[in-house]
Design a protein around this nucleic acid. Structure first.
Length: 415
RNA sequence: GCCCCCAUCGACUAGCGGUCCAGGUCGCGGCCCUUUCAAGGCCGUAGCGCGGGUUCGAAUCCCGCUGGGGGCACCA
């Protein structure tokens, strides 16, 4: 039996990072087992929002490399099938009409139980399960009817979803049994919390996949980080390639307690991935990111600047703030430190060649002559040239900036 | 209110009765390197929620408490 799992977002908006983590687990499991991962949209109407959300969902998943293996399906398309099944259940005496709706007759005695891959055995007394509405009086099936039916029709073998569905599971199991379907294996993974221990939401920071993308996180870093939220292959390994994740993932090792989303650790991990890139690959990512975010900066200069910042930023989105002085004017003055800035200008005015190496020698000479410590001497120059006390390497920056711009900035800052 | 679930450093976790006076990673602190910021190196900080059992022995098993979470819809 080949493994078949599914990702079932509702098209209500952007893809939430917590939900994506669950989808990632589905994908990892499917890939590892040589199975298939389906995308099913749990919609109940055809509004334009649905179409837009659907596109957004696909974009986000694609960006992360979470693939789906068959044509996406829509719950809406199977409303008719659901209704037919409901009517059949009525004639079988398993369901009944109730004020225009169709209700499923839940068993009154005993327990409904399953062996949850992450929770262990879960048992629910049937007396606590109310008769469930299958089809509303307006003819639309409810989620708790449509979802298990689709699992049956799609021959889903493993339902990997958020643990907020645990209480739905006994209902769905009873429905599947009533229609004679095969029960899937259930794996309920815990939700992700924000730093305050509450369900991750907007006020904790970024939660939509798009927001992380816009901030300049790498998809491979996101995947690595997400995989480690509630799962670990052992106690040591933290950086893992996509292939290694696929190879080592196991549902049994998914933790049953919820994890907090740690933005600081994500930043660290993204930095690790950024630094691991070759300088060319890093430059490619920078150019693409800048292009996608409205920066019309000279790509060649971006590429030359890339090596200067690769070790210094944790997110691509930090590049403009960090190296923007190479592309845009700066306007600062260095009141108390005009002397060293003027001297620097003089030293660089006719310097040949105008390279980082010679620039360094020249500026060190200036600083020495004035009897300044490197730190004292270089900082005003840095501010004059880059407009900031924090920047990439001074000498390399000056080389990239070029003599003309450098001289004019030094002059105007010392004025 | 009623059900159900969860509980190891600030965070993510390893641990599945002795090899743990609890290990790794992030964070945090210190030192080194250093033109800033990073990166890197070294050192350090900090935890088994509480109380009872079981056992020769418990972070590991059981019970209670506390704390947190989720569910109880003609929402998904």
């Amino acid at each position: 039996m080949t493994v078949r799992v599914r990702m079932a977002p509702s098209p209500t908006g952007f893809l939430h990072i917590g939900g994506v983590r669950t989808f990632l687990f589905n994908w990892l499991y499917a890939r590892q087992q040589g199975g298939r991962n389906l995308l099913r949209i749990e919609n109940t109407d055809t509004s334009r929002e649905v179409a837009e959300a659907f596109d957004q969902i696909k974009d986000s998943l694609s960006w992360l490399g979470i693939e789906w293996d068959e044509e996406p399906t829509f719950q809406l398309d199977r409303i008719g099938d659901c209704r037919r099944v409901a009517e059949q259940l009525v004639s079988d005496g398993r369901a009944y009409e109730d004020e225009g709706a169709i209700r499923f007759r839940m068993p009154d005695e005993g327990v409904t139980a399953w062996d949850d891959v992450v929770r262990g055995r879960v048992e629910v007394p049937n007396e606590t399960i109310e008769d469930l509405v299958l089809v509303r009086s307006d003819g639309r099936p409810t989620y708790n009817f449509a979802s298990p039916m689709e699992d049956v029709w799609d021959r889903i073998t493993h339902v990997i979803r958020g643990d907020d569905h645990i209480s739905n599971t006994p209902k769905q199991i009873n429905i599947i049994r009533a229609v004679g379907g095969d029960l899937p294996v259930y794996a309920h993974v815990p939700n992700i919390f924000g730093a305050d221990g509450k369900k991750l939401s907007k006020r904790h920071g970024a939660v939509g996949v798009d927001e992380f993308r816009d901030a300049g996180y790498l998809p491979e870093a996101m995947v690595n980080f997400l995989a480690l939220l509630g799962w670990a292959p052992d106690g040591e390994t933290t950086i893992m390639s996509r292939d290694e994740l696929v190879r080592r993932f196991s549902l049994e090792r998914v933790s049953s307690s919820p994890a907090q989303f740690d933005y600081a650790k994500l930043d660290w991990m993204n930095g690790v991935y950024l630094r691991a890139l070759s300088t060319d690959a890093f430059a490619d990512r920078l150019v693409i990111w800048l292009g996608e975010h409205g920066y019309e900066w000279d790509a060649e200069l971006v590429r030359r600047a890339a090596p200067l910042v690769q070790e210094k930023i944790a997110r691509l989105g930090e590049f403009p703030g960090f190296a923007g002085f190479l592309f845009e004017d700066v306007d600062v003055s260095v009141d108390g430190d005009a002397e060293v800035v003027r001297a620097a200008r003089d030293a660089l005015a006719d310097l040949e060649p105008f390279t980082a190496e010679s620039i360094e020698a020249a500026l060190r000479g200036v600083v020495d002559r004035l009897g300044l410590k490197p730190r004292q001497g270089f900082q005003p120059i840095r501010v004059a040239v880059t407009g900031s006390t924090v920047s990439p390497g001074l000498f390399e920056s000056i080389e990239l900036l070029g003599r003309e711009t450098t001289l004019s900035r030094l002059a105007s800052a010392a004025r």
